[in-house]
Structure formats: C-alpha cells, structure tokens
Amino acid sequence: MVSLLGKNGAGKSTLFLHFNGIYEPTEGQVLIDSEPVDYSKKGLMKIRQKVGIVFQNPDDQLFAPTVEEDVAFGPLNLGKSQEETQEIVTNALKRVDMSGYERKAPHHLSGGQKKRVAIAGILAMNPEVMVLDEPTSGLDPRGASEILQLLYELNNEGITIIISTHDVDLVPVYSNKVFVISKGNILTSGSTKEVFSDIGLIRKANLRLPRIAHLAEILEKHDGVDFNGDYPLTIGEARQKFNNIL
C-alpha cells in the first residue's frame, strides 16, 4: 500500500486524476507499467479498467438510484453480460461487506457504507491498481479503520492500493511506501520509518508525527528517556520499545 501525504492543495487530487487519464498532462508524461498512457478512446478504456479511482466524496461517485446498479455500471461498460455482471456485483458487494444492500438507494446509506459501495464499484472492474482520494475523510474513527483494514486485505490479495490521506496515525500501520508532496513536487519518499525520521520536513509539509511518536519525542527531550531519535510510529512498536526500556 502506497500513501501520499501532503497538505491541502498540495496537488494530491490532481495527481490522482492523472493516474487513469482523466487529466492529460501538458508537460511530461504519465507512465503506467512503464508504458506511456494512450489517450485514445480504446487506450483510456484499458487504463481505466486497470487503474480504478475511488473519489473523496462518495456522493459524487454514486449516481445510480440503487446500490446494485451503481456497482454494475463499470462491468457493463466493459462489455460484460448481465449474468457475468450479476456475479461480479454479488461478489464485489460481499467483499466490502455490503451484501444485502443491493436495492437500497445510495443516499439512504451512512458515510462509511457509501464509501464501501464506491469501493465495490471499482472492485467490480477488477483493477490492478486502486487509487483512493482521502478514503477516511468524513468517517468516524471506527469506520475509518474498517475501511483501511479492508484496503489492507485487498492489498494482500494483490491489488496495489494508493491512498492520499492526512491521517498520519494510520499511515505507519498500513503503508509500505510513503510519498510526501508539496506544491506539486515530491519532497521525500521511502518507508514510513525513513519518511517520519525527517521531522523538520514532515512539519514543513503541514503534517505532524504520529501521536505516539510525538509522545516519544517529548519523553526524550524533557524526561530523559532515550530512544536514540528512533521514535516508534505505531502502538505495536511503542509497546516493544517501552518494554525494552523498562
């Protein structure tokens, strides 16, 4: 799972719309699987099947009157038959734990449920890469961690997940690779450990350390607990470190 961190207006959403050819670059080129994007109709079909985008606001994405029709939209556009589509829809909704909501109207669902349906709509197209713009924004803490758990599982099943987020507490738990961008440029990239070790840069990008790392920083500076500048980023890591110290 790849996370993209950056302050508001850093260019995350714009970048994401380049990932499946919604925007066409005026300079440079977009490579997908090391091939430049083909902006012909046929090329775009292929790219958009391969790279699915889940938009930040599910209300923008869910346009159909019922959940099942919305999920069926992608596969039907790809030319699947009604029977194939039915199987795909059933499985996609089951995968996101929304089985049984087939005939509900999207605007009757909660925020978290809408998000799940939006994810199902992308899963139904069987993408290799799923791009999610702020998948946890507007969700309650439990809803947010459930969505990330789902993405983590999908990632383990072989789908590359790219998310943009501000939630620095959850990023270290789930991400393999992190990018920090600002004003359309990549400031730094690497593992969570590498990225969060440059505290100055993190703060310059309007981000912060995970709470637990911040606690460790304060403990080291003011209370003489020695972490060697290597602060734990997750609860699990912190537990181990504290145990070692104690």
Binding site: L17, N20, I22, L44, M45, R48, Q49, G52, I53, F55, N57, D60, Q61, F63, E68, E69, A72, F73, G74, L76, N77, L78, Q82, E83, T85, Q86, V89, E102, G121, I122, M125
Partner: peptide, 21 residues
Amino acid sequence: TLQRTLDSRCYTGELPVYKPD
C-alpha cells in the same frame, strides 16, 4: 465532477441497463 467519476469507470456515453435475475 459527475462527468469525471463516470469517465473513470469507462462511461461510453450511454448508461447501461442492469437487469439482475
């Protein structure tokens, strides 16, 4: 925005009809 979200799911200019059994 709607156009973009539809496009990113391969909208062909025609909304397909889904008729599940």
